[in-house]
Amino acid sequence: MANTLLSLAEKTFIVHGVDDNYRTDGRNRSEYRPMEVETKVLPHTSGSARLRLANTDILVGVKAEVDTPYPDNPNEGKLEFFVDCSANATPAFEGKGGDNLGTEISNTLTLAYQSSHVLDLTTLCILPQQKCWKLYVDVLILQCDGNLFDAVALAVKAALYSAQIPKVTTATLDGGKADIQLSDDPFDCVKLDVGSFPVLVTLCKNFTFIQIGENCVVDPTSEEEECSAASIVVAVMPNGRITSVVKTGYGSLQPSTLVKTLELAKDIGIKLNAGIMNALKEEDELGSQREIFGFLK
């Protein structure tokens, strides 16, 4: 990420290419790189997914635990994101080096999933005020080659799609103490409804020293990210509503550009959501006996 060094000539080359709608790897401005997704790669978690977007490699594990709800929201469960940038991606992430980036991404995810239109936290409640489900979504970034936000959001959606939460057979209040019985059958689970989970779309605006105008690129590689002064990360739900917008980078935009960017993000977000749901459904159709490759292929 920070270690791609680009000379001025290279930056000019990339920027001119974007202008002509022909990027260095041959894509046009609104194309994504090829993606691979596989779920259930970690059998000991409630849900997991591995997503590869060209060289960006993300592994997500979802764990469900029983916890006490917050006192001011007694009917709601909890959802917590944790993003860890592994040193495998670049030596700069060793120790605490990747913490800043990790907190930024987890904050963006928290914002995107904050609305109860996305995930109604009351569905995670077991016994009001006593017990609720807490979902830990843990993201491990293994390789980064640009466009981390999109890849992470897609992987999180895939992992949540595959997550299976054990069914609660009985939940009673026994003399003030909560008593919960979970189903013994490991296959007796509840799946989450991911129909309204958003995906993040990153649009990079190449601004810098050459006044390009309103050209923005989707799915930037790490070189393109270096050249851009500002990028907008938009969380789009499958029905086209926008749940969060964050602007990153040190540049500024004109209002008309912002509006155009948001519209483009919405269109792409809808297509991306449809794409990932198709892929996940196809994977489901392969059945539970499919061979899980994980990192072996």
Binding site: H44, L59, G61, E65, F82, D84, G95, L140
Partner: peptide, 18 residues
Amino acid sequence: QYSMAVFSFSAGERKKRP
């Protein structure tokens, strides 16, 4: 650097810090 993913424990709770 040896690091364990937060979700790596097969049995029991998740690790707080990798």
